[in-house]
């Protein structure tokens, strides 16, 4: 390379006329490939941020669980393993349908894309619905700390809650430890709440993507947004993959 090719010397502005680029290429990128790479990489960096965001919650959980293990065990027994497992399954299947949606966009199949986006949306709604049922149950049982007069009855006297008692035969907790079940439920609501918030954002974005997909916006070879949204959706799935054993499966035997 010689100096004659160097920077900004002479040369007229606007080397390439605009018509050469596809309409979805933003002006400051040189090629479509660069645009895809950059936005995809940006999404990954954002997910890193999200990992650390949940990281703070997981750290708190770890410390509290080690300190108040009995309270965490009995708090966990109050969760429905049926709903929890069902929700895990729903979310994993939704991850699959999302992956298929990305595949459909890559293969430029509009019908399949709409189908899988729709399925993902429905599974997302189903997840939130089940979450709502579970939360409502906690509300009724006065297991929502901070807002709704917390009741330690089920932990001071497990027999008062026959449904759970029948299955686990928990021994009564000391009053001090029974109070710590509030910590468990605080973390339960903080973690599942933060996760559900991400789900809600995801579902809203899905609606937006679905509407745009109907106009063929993602089946013309430019599927970056679907791909990046897919990454987000899978990430939310991964968070749940960890929340499920940590919150539901503490010592079920």
């Amino acid at each position: 390379m010689s100096d004659s090719t160097a920077i900004a010397q002479g040369a007229s502005a606007g080397a390439a006329p605009h018509g050469e680029h596809p309409s979805y290429q933003r002006h400051h990128f040189e090629t479509v490939g660069q645009q895809f790479d950059a936005t995809n990489f940006a999404m990954w960096i954002f997910l890193l941020t999200e990992v650390m965001f949940f990281g703070g919650l997981f750290t708190s959980y770890l410390i509290m669980r080690n300190w108040y293990y009995r309270a965490f065990v009995e708090g966990s027994h109050q969760l429905s393993i049926l709903w929890g497992t069902a929700n895990t399954t729903v979310l994993i299947i939704s991850s699959f349908t999302m992956a298929m949606a990305v595949w459909s966009a890559q293969m430029r199949r509009k019908g399949a894309l709409l189908l899988f986006l729709g399925l993902t949306f429905l599974l997302g709604i189903a997840f939130l619905g089940i979450k709502g049922i579970e939360w409502h149950e906690k509300w009724v049982k006065h297991h929502v700390p901070g807002i709704h007069q917390y009741s330690e009855q089920a932990f001071l006297n497990p027999a008062s809650d026959p449904e759970v008692f029948k299955e686990y035969h928990d021994k009564p907790l000391s009053p001090g430890m029974a109070q710590k079940t509030e910590e468990y439920f605080f973390l339960y609501f903080a973690m599942t709440g933060m996760h559900a918030l991400h789900m809600v954002i995801g579902v809203c974005l899905l609606v937006y993507i679905f509407i745009r997909a109907r106009t063929g916006a993602y089946t013309n070879g430019h599927f970056t947004f679907v791909e990046n949204f897919g990454l987000y959706w899978h990430f939310v799935d991964i968070i749940w993959i960890f929340l499920y054993p940590l919150l539901y499966l503490i010592s079920r035997y």
Partner: peptide, 12 residues
């Protein structure tokens, strides 16, 4: 909400 993981009064 007066409950959390940092305040020793709640066990935090």
């Amino acid at each position: 909400f007066h409950i959390g993981v940092f305040d020793p009064a709640f066990g935090g």
